Simulated scan of single mutants.
Amino acid sequence: MAKIIITGGTGLVGKRLSKLLIDKKHEVVILSRTPKHKNEFKWDVSSNYIDEKSLLNTDYIIHLAGAGIADKRWTKERKQVIIDSRVKTANLLFDKTAALNIPLKGFISASGVGYYGAITSNLIFTETDKVGADFLGDVCQKWENAAHQFSTKKIPVTILRTGIVLADKGGALEKMKTPIVSPLGSGKQFLPWIHLDDLCGIYIKAIEDNLSGIFNAVAPEHHTSKTFSKALAKSIKRPFLPIGVPGFLLKLIFGEMAIILLEGSKISAKKIEKNGYSFRFKTLKKALYNL
């Protein structure tokens, strides 16, 4: 049994991951700005504060905290919030654990497939490919660099570059369940996805099997916006309209942020599979049926 701190523990992934870890008899501590339960402790990056009691005897930190990429339009101020909510929080964790000399067994951080850039191509991106030359690439690189600080203290670092997380409640899937389901833009952009339980399974494997390094956390099956929408429409028994929502309209509504809806590439899941993770939901059909 390990003691595990989770940041972003009240979010979509954090809630499910906490439950699964507790079910496996691990001790879970949540860092929260407004702690409400006995396993929640206060932290506040603006005042550089973490309740030090939460850090004592910690084995692992899972860093999920970060402002939603798609929650608001990307103004200059919002872009800075997106970066700071990931980087400054990681810096705070590093500074406090170093000051208290906490001998962590591992630091596990979320990242995004946006690392490779918001582009559409037939290239299948692997963990060794270079960072994309756009805002998302910049966010992910700074996020990952903040995590890599822990390796300077000889603490193993694991980074999971995550695709769109599919869950039964909340997240992207809920927003896709429109009365008429249709692709976005050209419909040719790829949509890397993963079932929530597989993503949590990879986090748990990283802890229980001491898995370190960078891994793409996406399902092995590739889908475009068009094939994804078609499968979703069938699974929820709603009409499918093959004509995509026009790109100019999405740009009008979402501004620069529309790029994450209109572009996307294939991402390889081979590395995590070669390291022994067996996906429960390899196909979109199986994932949607479950959800």
Rank of each mutant, 00 (worst) to 15 (best):
L199A: 07
I207P: 00
R86V: 02
N122K: 10
A118G: 13
G163Q: 03
N39G: 06
I155D: 11
H26I: 06
E144I: 01
F190E: 04
F279D: 07
T224L: 00
A90V: 00
T126H: 04
E221K: 09
L55Q: 08
R78A: 08
L241C: 14
V45P: 05
K96D: 04
K230C: 08
A233N: 08
K25V: 08
T224A: 00
L291Q: 14
I159E: 06
G171S: 11
G132E: 01
A287P: 00
D129R: 03
V157T: 08
Y277W: 05
K153Y: 13
R33Q: 12
L199G: 06
C200Q: 09
F150L: 09
N275M: 10
D209W: 07
D59C: 05
I267S: 01
T283A: 11
I102P: 11
N101G: 11
L31Q: 06
F228E: 04
I214F: 06
I236F: 10
I260Q: 14
A233S: 12
N91W: 09
K234Q: 14
I260Y: 11
G244S: 03
L56F: 14
G185H: 05
T58W: 07
W143K: 12
L92H: 00
R86I: 01
K251G: 03
S47I: 15
K274A: 15
P183M: 04
A287G: 06
F240Y: 15
L17N: 01
T128A: 13
I30D: 10
L31A: 06
K274H: 12
A99T: 13
D198K: 13
K175F: 10
N57L: 13
Y277F: 15
L100R: 13
V29G: 08
K169F: 11
Y60N: 00
P35V: 01
N210A: 14
S32K: 06
E27W: 09
D138F: 14
Y60A: 04
I253P: 02
T158S: 15
T7V: 04
R33W: 06
K266C: 07
P179G: 03
I164Q: 05
S229K: 01
S151P: 08
D59H: 10
A167Y: 11
V81R: 11
N101Y: 10
K130G: 03
L199Y: 12
S46K: 15
K271C: 03
N275S: 13
I202P: 05
G106K: 06
L261R: 07
R78C: 04
M1A: 14
Q149I: 06
G255Q: 07
G201W: 10
E144F: 09
T75Y: 06
S109G: 11
L184F: 15
P103D: 13
L249T: 15
I61V: 15
I124G: 01
E144L: 07
K175S: 14
C140A: 14
F228Q: 01
E174G: 09
Y60G: 03
C200S: 13
A146G: 08
K274M: 12
T120Q: 01
V245E: 00
P183C: 02
I204L: 09
L166K: 08
F279K: 07
F190K: 06
F107K: 07
G11Q: 07
D59W: 09
V165C: 03
N275F: 13
P156C: 09
L123I: 14
K19F: 13
L104D: 11
A70P: 02
S229T: 02
V28E: 08
A217C: 03
P103L: 12
E144P: 05
K19G: 15
L92S: 01
V131K: 10
A172G: 14
C140I: 00
I159A: 10
